[in-house]
Amino acid sequence: MEEIARLHGAVNAKHAKIVAKKYLAAELRVDESIEFNPLTDLYMDLSKAEEPTYARGGQALTRDEYTRVLRYLLDADPQDVERPRRGRWTREQRVIERTACLDIILAQATMGLRISELCMRPVADCHVDGDGTFIVVLEAKDTKTRTGRQVAALAPEVSHRLANRLDTGSPWLFPSPSDPAKVWDPRNRDRKLAAVYQELATELDIEMFQHERGHSCRTTNNTLLYDLLPEAPRIRLFGHSKAVNRQKYTAITTTDAIVAAASPLFDPALR
């Protein structure tokens, strides 16, 4: 694990320890192959861990960038895909794949859901209310904090697009492009989403998307709603603690509001 840290960073080493502790050592303990879990109190020296080239998270789009991203995604043509020259993928599957990627990013941008909360969602957990708003109902077992919540799409156009996904006949909101009966494989899905984020970075000149992905939507939503929605419902909406909300999901995207708020403190003294 320390070698993993040296080669791939401390975060990956910690993840490896969690997986090994829970799914390997714990199972061996249950089977009585070992007497105790050796990973419970394991100390790892991470002082020589590889430093990441960048740290994801904590960044948010400005209001102008956010608006441009939504407009681009809503106007994007899902049919704009190249015909595959070889392989098992058909052009129809590529269109389904691109449509799903556009809808996933739109959903995250207007709902602030974690990628797992959104893309592993059965359609049975989704509905449209009387006002036409698309809503995802998360049970406690489906959330990171083990607290259930309901999340609504904040943009009517996005609600309409997501509502159409409930009538495809698939049990999943975002099924596999090649087999609607199965959920989309996360590794393949994330690779395709990364390509769309690179497209956004290039076409809209938003440098952040060169390395940031859908999780940045949570910071963006929380930041843009900061002055519009009290902290308690925002915490409930995004499903994390007050401390985490303040430390990791609030970003400064413009200094205008700060300067305006501080001006009474300094203007008189400088006149």
Rank of each mutant, 00 (worst) to 15 (best):
E3L: 13
E3K: 13
G9N: 03
G9R: 08
G9K: 06
V11R: 15
N12H: 13
A16S: 02
K17L: 13
I18F: 13
A20T: 08
Y23L: 05
V30Q: 09
D31I: 07
E32Q: 14
E32D: 01
S33G: 07
F36G: 03
F36C: 08
M44A: 05
M44G: 04
M44T: 06
D45A: 10
E50R: 15
E51T: 12
P52Y: 12
P52F: 15
R56K: 15
R56E: 13
R56Y: 12
R56H: 12
G57W: 00
G58H: 13
Q59H: 15
Q59L: 14
A60V: 15
Y66T: 09
T67P: 09
L70S: 09
R71P: 12
L73D: 04
D75I: 06
P78Y: 00
Q79G: 07
V81F: 00
R85G: 12
R86D: 15
R88Q: 08
W89F: 07
W89M: 09
I96F: 04
E97P: 05
Q108H: 00
L113W: 01
I115L: 12
S116I: 01
A124E: 13
H127Q: 08
G132S: 08
F134H: 14
I135R: 01
I135Y: 04
E139F: 06
D142L: 10
A153W: 05
L154I: 02
A155F: 05
P156V: 01
E157H: 11
E157M: 07
S159I: 07
H160R: 14
A163N: 00
L166P: 02
T168C: 00
T168P: 00
P171R: 10
P175V: 03
P175F: 03
S176F: 00
P180T: 03
A181I: 04
A181H: 11
V183C: 04
P186K: 00
R187S: 07
R189S: 08
A195K: 14
Y197K: 13
Q210W: 11
E212V: 04
N221P: 12
L224I: 10
Y226S: 12
Y226T: 08
Y226L: 10
P233I: 14
P233R: 11
G239W: 00
A243L: 03
V244Q: 13
K248Q: 15
V259M: 05
V259C: 00
A260S: 06
A261K: 07
L265G: 05
D267S: 05
D267H: 01
D267L: 02
D267T: 06
